[in-house]
Amino acid sequence: MATATPAPIPGTHIFDGAAAQKGYALNAMCYSFNSAQNRDAFVRDEAAYIDKFQLTAEQREAVAARNVLQMMAAGGNVYYLAKLAGILGLNVQDLGAQQTGMSVDAFKQMLLDQAKTPAAKEAICG
């Protein structure tokens, strides 16, 4: 029997057991990218590499589209996806921009602007 789940947090996806189970193949592929040799193999022949890890159709589509939200919907966890993003030349600001629908510059500015709020100023002086 499932326990009561707390109210969802807007724009936030909890990487829970269901996601971990669903995303296993995609995350396993991303985990393999700790090895430079494996990163090279992916770059050389992406389709063959993906076959080796038996990604689901949804995961293949998300990777082909280079779409982070889709990868997360397919069970991807950002700590592992970051290793794939590295191969694609994307840093966490690029990922943030893509997920929020902002330009990379606007996303970076949004990060900088958070230092200017009264709460931030108080914490910085703290």
């Binding site: 929020t100 996303f107 709460a119 914490a123």
Partner: peptide, 18 residues
Amino acid sequence: LDGERAGFMNAEYDKFCM
């Protein structure tokens, strides 16, 4: 890092923790 809320920070909560 992830989701449509990527980039979220909360100085007020951080200050509470510190």
